[in-house]
Amino acid sequence: MVEEKKKSPNKARDWAFKVAKATLKATLIYLLYFVLSPYIAMLSTLASGFTETIEVFVAVTIVLMILSDLTAKTIYQCFLNAGRAIFTIAYLVFALGDGVLSIALDNFSLTVNLTSLYAIVALLSLLGLAKAMLQAINFMSERAESGLKP
């Protein structure tokens, strides 16, 4: 009884910490997007629909990040982290294709080769995916060692 009473404020504090962390991270990401949005809008004049695509990416990333922080220290966090990494790679593949961005305007065409950036982002996402998988393995092994259900 005494132990349960002690755990309750800890749990509440844990949740408060998780919520605060998730809010802070989401706010920082949104602020970064807010700072960059004029330049994104500038690019949107060259390629229509660019802003909308970025908005979807930022929204999904923030949602997955918040959920991941809220489900910290559970197996769901590993799934959400892996999901976020896979989403980033999938987004890149669908948005950029081969990494060469060609924009045709009135009487000129602009070609931007983003292959190097594409490769770096994909590698970082793969690193995130590897981390999520290691987290999952670690989580399962710790649970198995302590005899708890995952």
Partner: peptide, 10 residues
């Protein structure tokens, strides 16, 4: 350094 860009027009 890492973003090759090309502009073509007639």
């Amino acid at each position: 350094e890492i973003v090759p860009t090309q502009l073509a027009t007639n």
